[in-house]
Design a binder for these strands. Structure first.
Lengths: 185, 185
DNA sequence: TGGGCCATGTAACCAGTTACATGATTGC
DNA sequence: GCAATCATGTAACTGGTTACATGGCCCA
């Protein structure tokens, strides 16, 4: 059950559900996805459990905001989660499952097309991540080892995302070579 | 919605729910997890939709088996899934989320411990995958490029798992070095 | 006046987990 | 006689998705 804990991590300063969604879509996108419609009830539940507090504030644009701020108990709960050790989610990788059954195609052409599509897509996400890191490099002279703790750990997750994506790209490329060699026979 | 399609892929020959679960736990474990209690209703649904057929057979050990076999329509549905292009599931990586908040710890010691635990665990899964690949090498002289199509694509998914796990190991190791360097200051 | 962004939410649904229930066969 | 493995399932619940609803503000 990670989402509530992530929200406790993000509400160290007062933040609205809408703002949190933007954070998921930018800074956390390479390791967590959440729907806005999922955040609102989750935040409400944190308040009910005494792990966060709400305050309603007028917004500059649009309707009132509700700013959520974790309580001391909320921070405790977050620390508890961190000290349970590395968490896991059951593996579910749809495109690897598809690769597993690619032999069902009559010809290798379609398998090759599949892998080429996959390669294009992974290269795209890799570039997105790279762009974020590059932006960081420009802003910050001491990048990456002089970063403050906040940014240091954020950069660690970015680095993980980049390395994994690069590994997938190499895998796609050598797989394509192998497939093409088989197709010629 | 991948699980039904995976089951259609696995029921090219008559197979029981119990046997399918074993397949998930051995051959598919590096890219998909499913509970047994999830498989039974899913198989039933495939039959209802005309994508598979059941036949009850006495078992050598224990109670009767129900052998599921995909129909022609079932195979069509599988091919349709494959030709929709690479699928994705929304990203959810609990331990990366935890790394993101590791700055909440007062000292770096706990962060270092977290990464060490993670490294140990990832090394373990990597060894499991390596053992499978090694077993394959022994059995098969022409490994990996002379494999038949079935085994070739299975090996591709294994290769993906190994590469990604190795990327994570390298990430853990360099992250630990960087963390330790910061802790000394 | 119409689209995009700001901002909140609910309800129905689907996928997956956990807990429980049943019972045969095999080997110690 | 008991534990492990073989074999099938159901029910309650949780986590997440999709679709829908509301309405203000800003800019072209």
């Amino acid at each position: 059950m990670s989402l509530p804990h992530i929200l406790l991590g993000l509400t160290a300063t007062p933040t609205s559900g809408y703002e949190l969604k933007q954070k998921f879509d930018t800074t956390l996108r390479h390791f967590w996805f959440a729907e806005l419609s999922q955040l609102y009830p989750a935040l409400k539940k944190l308040v009910k459990e005494g792990l966060a507090e709400v305050e309603t504030m007028p917004s500059e644009k649009g309707p009132d905001k509700k700013l959520y701020l974790r309580t001391a108990a909320g921070r405790e709960e977050l620390l508890k989660w961190l000290s349970t050790g590395p968490g896991t989610a059951p593996l579910r990788h749809p495109y690897l499952a598809q690769v597993f059954f690619l032999n069902e195609h009559q010809s290798h052409e379609q398998a090759i097309k599949f892998m080429e599509d996959l390669l294009t897509r992974i290269k795209g996400t890799c570039q997105t991540l790279q762009a974020i890191e590059d932006g960081w490099k420009d802003e910050d002279g001491g990048y990456p080892n002089q970063l403050n703790d906040d940014d240091f750990f954020t950069q660690l997750t970015l680095d993980a995302g980049l390395r994994v994506n690069k590994a997938y790209i190499e895998w796609c490329e050598t797989s394509l070579e192998r497939l093409k060699a088989r197709a010629e026979k």
